[in-house]
Nucleic acid binder design. Structure first.
Lengths: 340, 340
DNA sequence: TTGTACGCGTTATCAG
DNA sequence: CTGATAACGCGTACAA
């Protein structure tokens, strides 16, 4: 049974109102009294009860970050950025991720039931984006959506301009490296990121007047291993002068490079390989990966920033922030080496 | 202004107690009335106010996970495991990490002030372990410590038996691979993990009667790059038949392999390299890394499990769970290839 | 089986 | 500058 504000008041010989003022607006209270109260607070190691406080203030100082998954550096970096920004504004960060088998409702119910969060930043998986609208609206808290948009709910959003990043990559491949043929290895077709990256791939190819073969496009599941297996089968066929593979994330790019090597196809000499995301991995493999830097931690931080801004000013019109993705040229595309 | 329990009561033509019962102990209430109340709840999309509820129940359903850092797969996996376990028991997970420049007090104050968490699982950095005791005690909530112990506070703990894992690794190197010389590359000397791994290194060497040179031991900072730089300088000197490098984590092992390669020293032919942790990276580099699997997500899950158990039974004596670390043999130690 | 009334610890309002 | 008091929304003895 921790000390209550009343205990402090008694010990300091003042009323609870005064104690409350010392805590929240110490300016309005006599210097002398202030000291006395503070002494009492220390002596009882009093800390305001967060529940009672929340009951009055109608806020907890907790913001939620809800992700579709927690696997991998991508999400880990979002969390890291979010945590930094949350602390910046004195908020705490509640994390939750969908579990296998969750539907939109059960997914959000865990957080929804507790209803302690002042607002929610969330990233929805492509398989779930359809159903979340209504459930989200019921939650009745400010929402920031990461890298997507949701129908039927007012929300701020922070998106990454992948289109532009992917186009920059294609431009580099086609115009600087003189690509003759580019294979595309994406995640599942319904994935929003894969879609954006694929779209850029198509458009750039068309615009450059390079013929695009229907079966130059593959859809895997974003994992190293799936890409490794694919490369084992295809690397020899893919290899060729000015031939490239554009993988939709770094992990698959790494898998492709390893798979190609296992088939005796060396990167970038016989085949260029580029990735997407610029995770730590990109610098740890050989050859270092040419890729597109996606500002993941910045995205997390911006999401929380938007959320806190809305908390401070609920009337503000919905805001959408777009973060640029930046081309990072290393060696896997043949830069600084013999052209593929 | 969301609906309150009173609104529901009115709409259903019952008293608030009945509504409360329907929510918490529906068994005590008439089938008929129950239906009516539930209808009203749905109609108003009523959700109990978590603050008022917490005020009575003295708990939030939120458990905190406090980490020294959020960088890298290690922490990300802990979070993932913790999240799974938290949801298992209907809890929510609050995450916080120390920021550069935090001292023990300011570090915990963010969470402490809000005081909404029912309990705390925390991992302290070696630079901070000294001062946390008192601060932690003031928080006055159940504590579970990850991979360490803290003086002056009652707490449960989950630790990883690194000693045993490191010994298994040394045994493999010395007895199966016939190592003649083993270099040790650790993190900073004050790091508890590095200490445990180093201790095993020393003991195994001694026991095997292999002479250990004083300057076979290096202390870096756990990063790929620092290890890469070191290998650039040392690889040629390290290389030799039955020579090995035992790195204290996978990332440094990867750096060493890359640095060695850059110096024309091939792994494992001329030098064996092994790591620790078994992060995803271990399977993504060439050659695949022999390492010790540290059950990170399991550690996170176990921490939350212990926490929830204590929440359920506060009187239970302090519990310490030890998780085994398992040797994973791949190719970087020369397995399935020419001996180094 | 249901309703009444009180208390949980704060903050905010308003009167001194 | 300070104190009394009314909310805040809910759980739960206790009474009916």
């Amino acid at each position: 049974m921790p000390a209550s504000i009343e205990d402090v008041a008694k010990l300091a010989n003042v009323s609870i109102s005064t104690v409350s003022r010392v805590i929240n607006r110490r300016s309005l209270v006599n210097e002398e009294t202030c000291k006395r109260v503070e002494a009492a607070i220390r002596q009882l190691s009093y800390r305001p009860n967060a529940f009672a406080r929340g009951l009055m203030l109608r806020k907890s100082g907790i913001v939620g970050l809800v992700l579709p998954d927690l696997h991998g550096e991508f999400y880990s970096e979002i969390i890291r950025g979010a945590n930094i920004q949350a602390r910046e504004t004195g908020h705490n960060l509640l994390i939750s991720s969908a579990m296998p088998g969750d539907d939109a409702k059960s997914w959000l119910s865990t957080i929804g039931q507790h209803a302690l969060v002042d607002g929610l930043a969330l990233m929805v998986s492509d398989t779930m984006v359809a159903g979340v609208g209504p459930t989200l609206a019921e939650l009745n808290v400010p929402i920031v959506v990461l890298d997507d948009e949701i129908e039927g709910v007012d929300h701020d959003a922070v998106i990454i301009d992948q289109q532009q990043g992917a186009l920059a990559m294609m431009d580099h491949l086609l115009n600087t490296r003189g690509a003759q043929r580019i294979y595309f290895v994406g995640g599942v077709e319904t994935n929003i990121d894969t879609q954006a990256r694929y779209k850029a791939y198509r458009e750039a190819l068309q615009q450059a007047g390079v013929k695009s073969h229907k079966d130059d496009v593959y859809h895997l599941d974003y994992t190293y291993d799936s890409a490794y297996q694919l490369a084992l089968k295809k690397a020899r066929a893919w290899a060729g002068p000015k031939h490239f593979v554009f993988a939709a994330n770094d992990e698959m790019a790494a898998g492709i490079i390893a798979g190609a090597a296992a088939q005796g196809v060396s990167v970038p000499q016989e085949l260029g390989v580029v990735g997407f995301d610029d995770t730590r991995l990109a610098q740890m493999i050989k050859p270092p990966l040419t890729t597109v830097r996606v500002p993941m931690s910045k995205m997390g931080a911006t999401a929380i920033e938007l959320l806190c801004q809305r908390l401070a000013d609920p009337e503000r019109p919905p805001t959408k922030v777009s973060l640029p993705a930046e081309l990072v040229i290393r060696e896997s595309c043949g830069n600084g080496a013999k052209n593929p």
